[in-house]
Computed example of a mutant assay.
Amino acid sequence: MFPVPAQGGRPLFEWRWVDRHLDEIFERLGEHIVLTAAALAIGLVVSIGVSAISLRRRWFYVIALSTAGSLYVIPSLGAFAVLVPFTGLTSFTTAVIPLATYTLLILIRNIVTGVEQVPKEVREAAIGMGFTRSRLLWQVELPLALPVVIAGLRVAAVTTIGLVTVTSMLGKGGLGYFIRNGIQTATPNPTSIIVGVGLSVVLAVVVDLLLWLGGRALAPWSRKAASR
């Protein structure tokens, strides 16, 4: 059914292995999605809060961006290792916190940039209608900044999907579980590795497409502006 070359006496890809592990594949795929969604949700909430303060206090934005940048360059395994004594080796929290911190740099920068790109005359019109600073942000600026925010969310989502595989070292790696097991077995299992890598790529493409479609649906004016 699927012509594959043999490697060391073992086929490169075995459909029978996939069939035997189908339930586990769906289970790990679900875990991957949950970890990604949780990290993005936490990162987005924190980023919106930090961005709201940053838009009022420019000095705070510099500090927030520097801090987020510092967190972004911390190796993922190092971040997990630091948290293990406090949250446990196989804890969901241990896996999610570093994943969420890696989204902050991208999201904070995009939210602030998107809001700053809102035309000045739009702000002045809203203020003239009696909008408070908070109402202006939530009802005018953030909605208009949505295309830029969604663009950042797409980058953060794809990045997070890739990083989730690393949490397999904690026993929480979603599809990374298959990559780790395929490498660590006495006889490397290429099928397991291909399943883990392949589904991670497919998931990233699907999530990116869904966010793109969501952005077009939530901000239809951006389509009209792009077509001009």
Rank of each mutant, 00 (worst) to 15 (best):
D19Y: 08
K172Y: 01
V201Q: 07
F86A: 15
V158T: 15
T167D: 00
W221I: 00
T132G: 15
T36R: 04
L40V: 05
G162Q: 11
A219H: 07
S70P: 00
G128K: 01
G215D: 02
K172D: 02
V205K: 14
A151E: 12
E121H: 14
F92H: 09
E121T: 14
L44M: 14
R20V: 07
A100L: 01
V96Y: 08
S70V: 15
I53T: 10
A95K: 05
A95F: 08
K224M: 06
V96L: 04
I150K: 01
V202C: 02
S47N: 04
L105K: 09
F80S: 06
R16H: 13
L211P: 07
P11Q: 09
V140A: 06
M1T: 11
P188Y: 10
L210N: 12
V112D: 02
G69F: 06
T67E: 00
L89E: 04
A64Y: 03
L71A: 10
H32F: 03
N181S: 12
P147M: 03
V164C: 09
S66I: 04
D19C: 02
W138S: 14
L144W: 01
L107Y: 05
T94R: 03
I48E: 05
Q7H: 08
G128E: 02
T67R: 00
G162W: 09
R135S: 12
P11Y: 06
T36C: 11
A156H: 06
S227D: 12
V73A: 10
L83S: 10
V96Q: 01
P190I: 03
A64S: 14
I74N: 11
V18R: 03
F13V: 10
T185W: 06
S222L: 00
S200H: 00
N110W: 07
R180H: 09
R135H: 10
R154A: 06
W138Q: 11
V148E: 04
V140S: 03
K224E: 15
T159P: 00
I194N: 05
V50A: 13
L35A: 05
R58L: 02
R20K: 11
L83P: 10
L22V: 07
W15N: 00
